[in-house]
């Protein structure tokens, strides 16, 4: 649910990172925070426990250039993996304009990815979204690790819809795939807003 303010002339898009615990959602957002032009980024809020588990959510606001005179702002959220409060999940999923599913490419996490994807589908429908309609992209993260599943196999299991998908290494200094993933979902959101307006 995009937020359009004609008075302050801004559009706010809410994008949610979803995925199994420890797949790299927080790392994606932290990379974006460090690699974004300081003028464009707001403060990163990371509500983590001492053990670096996301307790509630991570939040990063970004400002993109104006589009048709309206400032475009992105609000990036991650959902917590372990202590998965229904309250924070609800807050985060509610009003989402786009979803990024981050998969953990490691063989040992194959099942965990499937469970998280089922969970996402269930959540989306609970909040009235259709996974085939909401702007949605998939990221296969941790491609640097030795025991990773082939992308083809991950794709078959996690992306039967053929939405845009990207390989990524969120921990690398240049974060391959991280911005591509975000850009893709933003494009889909704006294209959908445009299609709806026509």
């Amino acid at each position: 649910m995009s937020f359009i303010n004609y008075s302050s002339r801004e559009i706010i898009l809410k994008i949610v990172y979803y995925g199994p615990g420890l797949c790299g959602k927080t790392t994606n957002i932290k990379f974006i925070h460090t690699a974004t032009n300081p003028d464009a980024r707001g403060k990163l809020i990371s509500l983590e426990t001492k053990a670096e588990r996301t307790l509630f959510f991570d939040f990063l606001p970004l400002s993109l250039p104006a589009i048709r005179g309206f400032k475009t702002r992105l609000h990036l959220y991650t959902v917590p993996g372990q202590l998965f409060y229904s309250a924070s999940r609800k807050l985060i999923m509610k009003g989402a304009d786009g979803v990024i599913f981050v998969a953990d490419s490691q063989d040992a996490r194959f099942e965990a990815n499937l469970i998280a994807m089922d969970d996402l589908k269930e959540n989306l429908s609970a909040y009235g979204y259709d996974i085939e309609k909401i702007p949605f992209v998939v990221q296969y993260n941790k491609r640097d690790l030795p025991n990773v599943t082939d992308v083809e196999k991950l794709r078959e299991a996690l992306n039967p819809w053929g939405v845009p998908d990207f390989e990524a290494i969120a921990t690398e200094p240049d974060g391959p795939g991280v911005f591509d993933t975000l850009k893709a979902v933003v494009k889909m959101i704006i294209q959908q807003l445009r299609a709806g307006a026509r």
């Binding site: 649910m1 303010n5 004609y6 008075s7 909040y127 979204y129 909401i134």
Partner: peptide, 12 residues
Amino acid sequence: MNPRTVIFEEEQ
């Protein structure tokens, strides 16, 4: 899809 929130100047 979810409805979108729009704020106009008067209500603002």
